[in-house]
């Protein structure tokens, strides 16, 4: 136990944790959205995320930015980030839609029991992972330098870098957009209706298939943006990178209360913080253990998560 280290670096650890947590939160939205309408954990969502990490790199290479190139001009960086976000979001969204079509919709037609959906989910996840391994290799793929971390300001002695600001701001922005889409638009109300009472939603004229496809698409778009931020933050990805972040995002979703959009944000940030505080305390080898201890404890003592179902309006 290294309590002194934790105390001395508390602010720094917290800032790093928030940036990572914001990424978890964006990925967690995909689990929570799909769970909301289908009561299904889409285990292939981790590969939907990985799609975005590779789409980002392919976009960079496409416009001629290699892994060892120096940081381009600010204007170029901004344009690149916008372009990469669009490409990654669309790629992840497309893969999410494909997963729904191929792995789940045929099962819904046959009224398959929940366990079959779960098996199909794991299967889809493995198939996608191996496809990426086949075409992009099994080694780490380096992203390249887009942002040179530079301290912008200091809070409670913690240096906050431009990269961290960018990550947290983009993630929160995406979540605000999603939240208002779900609560304000007609299609969003359709999503909420299906999640609260599928039969009654059909009686209102809501096309359930379209709503389900929409939740996969939205989850995919969020995962795509998360993937860009992930690439920025860690600078490297891999065909199997989705496994760990997928499980952590799933933990974040459960922690906040699965099916609850604001819960995903809360769960993601908390998990990011806990991981960083925990690894300072126990050593970095314990980092991943912390997330899963969290998952087990939440499932044992409060399976509905922190916000749970109490926030009726915030539920999808």
């Amino acid at each position: 136990m290294n309590i002194d280290f934790l105390i001395d670096n508390f602010a720094d650890l917290s800032v790093t944790g928030l940036a990572q947590g914001a990424i978890y939160a964006l990925v967690a939205l995909g689990y929570t959205l799909v769970y909301g309408v289908l009561r299904l954990i889409n285990f292939a969502h981790s590969e939907v995320f990985v799609t975005g990490t590779f789409a980002t790199i392919l976009t960079l290479r496409g416009i001629g930015i290699g892994p060892d190139d120096p940081v381009p001009s600010l204007l170029m960086v901004l344009l690149t980030l916008v372009l990469a976000s669009i490409v990654a979001a669309l790629s992840s969204g497309a893969v999410a839609l494909l997963v729904e079509r191929v792995a789940y919709r045929p099962l819904r037609r046959r009224n398959a029991p929940p366990l079959v959906f779960l098996i199909s989910a794991v299967g889809a996840s493995l198939v996608l992972m191996e496809i990426y391994a086949l075409f992009l290799g099994r080694d780490n793929v380096r992203v390249g330098n887009l942002i040179k971390p530079r301290t912008q300001f200091t809070v409670f002695g913690a240096d906050v870098t431009n990269r961290q600001i960018l990550i947290v701001v983009s993630a929160v922005l995406m979540m605000v957009v999603l939240d208002s889409f779900i609560s304000r638009t007609r299609l969003g109300r359709g999503v909420r209706a299906v999640s609260q009472n599928p039969d009654a939603a059909a009686l209102m004229g809501v096309n359930k298939d379209r709503v389900i496809a929409l939740t996969f698409l939205l989850g995919g778009l969020m995962a795509g943006v998360a993937a860009v931020l992930y690439d920025l933050n860690f600078g490297v990805t891999k065909f199997s990178a989705g496994f760990l972040i997928g499980l952590k995002a799933f933990t974040a979703a459960v922690l906040g209360g699965i099916g609850n959009l604001r819960g995903a944000l809360l769960g993601g940030l908390l998990l990011g913080l806990a991981e960083n505080w925990g690894q300072a305390l126990l050593g970095s080898a314990w980092r991943d253990v912390i997330a899963f201890v969290f998952l087990i404890v939440v499932l044992m003592f409060r399976p509905t998560g922190i916000l749970g179902e109490s926030l009726g309006r915030a539920r999808v």
């Binding site: 109300r189 609260q196 039969d199 009654a200 939603a201 009686l203 209102m204 004229g205 809501v206 309006r313």
Partner: peptide
Amino acid sequence: ISQAPEGRGIFPGMSVRDNLDMGAYA
């Protein structure tokens, strides 16, 4: 064709007003 289903056929997490708006969804 519009059906008022039996029992608890409402959307519990939506306000009464939003429930009514759902009726006009189509």
